[in-house]
């Protein structure tokens, strides 16, 4: 089993519903976020091209954050999802330093927090909150080992990229281009 997500940069309109859905679902403290939307504008007016990306933890297969954690609080869970056990985390910040995507933050309670792919919803057979809230249905989630899952189906037919593959982290958040 290998959970992954694909985000269609052609369908995303940058409304940030995914961000609010995550904050609400996961009780993210005010002022923080586990996911965010990046807008990249290339060119000069009137020849402009925009790419919109809903970004979050890449749930890497080769996670530097899991490697550098001195207590084992950061670990791989079912389907390769990278999780933090709050009562094992000492808040040393090593994983925050190690993440090339800056996807982790220090929770006001002291431990480190990050996207969990809404593992509590997946276990109930639901989609992650961001995916289910997206009004343009631009996100696809599922198990890459299952060829029938939405994410496998879309990656078969569309061109995609991952972020900084050269960092060697083997990210599992795909961007359809």
């Amino acid at each position: 089993m290998r959970y992954a997500m694909a985000v269609d940069t052609k369908k995303c309109v940058g409304c940030s519903d995914c961000v609010v859905a995550c904050q609400t679902e996961n009780n993210v403290p005010i002022g923080y976020c586990r996911d965010w939307v990046v807008e990249i504008t290339d060119g000069t007016y009137p020849q402009l091209e925009i790419e919109l990306r809903s970004e979050r933890c890449n749930q890497c297969d080769n996670s530097p954050c899991v490697r550098c954690c001195p207590t084992g609080a950061s670990h791989y869970s079912d389907g390769g999802i990278v999780l933090v056990t709050a009562n094992k985390c000492i808040g040393c910040g090593a994983c925050i330093q190690s993440c090339p995507y800056d996807a982790r933050y220090s929770h006001p309670d002291g431990h480190v927090d990050k996207c969990t792919f809404c593992i509590h919803r997946i276990k109930k057979g639901l989609e992650p909150a961001c995916v289910s809230a997206c009004p343009t249905k631009c996100m696809y989630f599922g198990d890459l080992d299952n060829p029938k899952s939405p994410v496998s189906e879309i990656l078969k037919v569309r061109k995609y990229k991952t972020l900084i593959p050269e960092a060697g982290t083997d990210p599992q958040l795909y961007f359809l281009i």
Binding site: S16, W36, V38, E39
Partner: peptide, 12 residues
Amino acid sequence: EIIVSGRNNYLI
């Protein structure tokens, strides 16, 4: 490049 959803995680 801008983060349109806003992101201001403390210390990050």
